[in-house]
């Protein structure tokens, strides 16, 4: 959610900054700021391209050593849908005698709005998927009902996904033009997380023929579910 909540404000701040630069360039070019076009490295008067200045020259006119502008995250624009769509698939292997589940593969297809950086976007989905694996198979806070203490507050008793529990993860982004904010960016860390656990739950059901109705899907629960099968 960081990218969709911050990029619209960043983009707005950048627009304000550009206005300030145009105002600095205007007197030197003898034109109104609205008549100046800034493109690549050049500031140019729209109706007389011979009147131009380099970006560096405009910057030299900055009083002091920096120019700053602020932007804010305005409410989303009306009339656009913000729903996210995605599909999450999981392939699991269940040791039917021991009740141990291993996730072999997760395919995450996400309606992702506009992707700003594909590599870090994939990192985001990997993180969501892996937290989803933990949510599905390992993680839970165990409270002793009588003592009122959490008995597994440590990093060996509270089980976090480790490197050997990582499935093969395939991430596909479907970029959709989306007009609800000024960058078209959507968040997808959470969808990848929650949906992964659900997909793993369904895959376990498919594998053993009975659903395991609570998370995490630990071996004791798988074995108990299989007992009810006959």
């Amino acid at each position: 959610m960081t990218t969709p909540s911050t990029t619209p404000a960043v983009r707005q701040a950048a627009a304000h900054l550009k206005e300030k630069l145009l105002r600095l360039a205007a007197p030197a070019l003898g034109a109104e700021p609205s008549d100046i076009e800034a493109r690549n490295d050049l500031f140019q008067v729209r109706f007389d391209p011979s009147r131009k200045m380099s970006f560096a020259d405009v910057c030299r006119r900055i009083p002091g050593d920096s120019l700053s502008a602020e932007g804010e995250r305005v409410p989303n624009y009306e009339g656009y849908r913000r729903d996210q769509a995605g599909c999450q698939f999981a392939e699991v292997e269940v040791d039917a005698e021991l009740g141990i589940v291993r996730v072999l593969r997760v395919v995450a297809v996400h309606d992702a709005g506009q992707i700003i950086d594909p590599l870090t976007a994939r990192s985001q989905v990997n993180g969501g998927v892996l937290m989803g694996v933990g949510y599905a198979l390992f993680e839970t806070r165990r409270m002793d009902p009588r003592l009122g203490i959490m008995v597994n507050p440590t990093m060996d008793d509270y089980k976090l996904v480790g490197p050997l529990d990582v499935p093969e993860i395939e991430v596909r982004f479907v970029e959709v033009a989306n007009g609800f904010n000024n960058t078209g960016v959507m968040g997808f860390g959470e969808p990848a997380h929650v949906a992964t656990a659900a997909a793993i739950g369904c895959a376990v059901y498919d594998a053993i023929g009975v659903p395991v109705r609570s998370l995490p899907i630990t071996p004791d629960r798988v074995l108990a579910a299989m007992e009810t099968r006959a």
Binding site: L98, I100, F138, D156, K159, G162, P163, L164, P219
Partner: peptide, 12 residues
Amino acid sequence: EAREKQSFDWPL
């Protein structure tokens, strides 16, 4: 041994 996690974990 049987463990919940395949990465480091105490055996069940």
